[in-house]
Amino acid sequence: MIARLVPGDLRLRLIAAFVLVACLSQLSHLPVAGAALAVLAVASLGRVPLRRLRHVEGFVLLLFVMLPFTLPGTPLLTLGPLEMSREGLARAALLACKVLASALVLLAFLGAVEPARLGAALHALRLPEPLVRIFALTPRYLALIRDEIRRLREAMRARGFRPGTNRHSWRSYGNLIGMVILRALDRARRVDEAMRCRGFTGRFPHAALPRPGLRDWRGVVLTAGLGVVLVLADRG
């Protein structure tokens, strides 16, 4: 269902997702936020791999642990010196709905897009070149850096290292992190050199993207419309 909303053109897709998330962030009533979450969850059913929501779940959980006990208001429950307030619980629920709804929007709109394509789209939207380049190159080299960490850790284990809570372990992990950063810097330097050898002078040769079609614009209008309706419902 959400496929009808998502514009095919990546630039417009980024804009649409941005507008919708911006609208979601303005909601201040739990029923509206809850309804928004429900609508988005139903719409994106089968399109968004739900396990990817794990990345935000920790944050949502933290909200539920912290907010009810820190926001003053009508007490609901007393645990020793801690008091759980109705207002805090409501605020946590509101924020959770907004966070999850926003995450669903981002996953549905951009979850399956390759970072490099996203980089080209961000470039087309006139984002600063260095930011786009960092964004596009990070995923490519993250795998290599991860491999490097794995190899270093295996080599440590092979020499009998057993992590524990002691000075030796902390120092060893400190060295490991330092070494990974040094190697990443070295790698960055060599990648830059290899790019310069192939004639790179600081401007990424992104291919021009085709003009967005009518269907793409319709997606933006529908998505933005949904956002505006939500904000109006929240205000009214």
């Binding site: 390759e114 970072p115 490099a116 190159l137 490519r140 080299y141 290599l144 790698r187 060599r190 990648v191 050199e193 290899a194 790019m195 050898c197 192939r198 004639g199 790179f200 002078t201 040769p205 291919a207």
Partner: peptide, 27 residues
């Protein structure tokens, strides 16, 4: 002057092969 680096991973930074090979001509 084509310079083949010792470590291939230093040179291959584009997501797909075709894009990486096209990088030089685009430049």
């Amino acid at each position: 002057i084509g310079f083949l680096f010792q470590d291939s991973d230093d040179q291959l930074f584009c997501p797909t092969v075709a894009e990486d090979v096209a990088f030089g001509p685009l430049n």
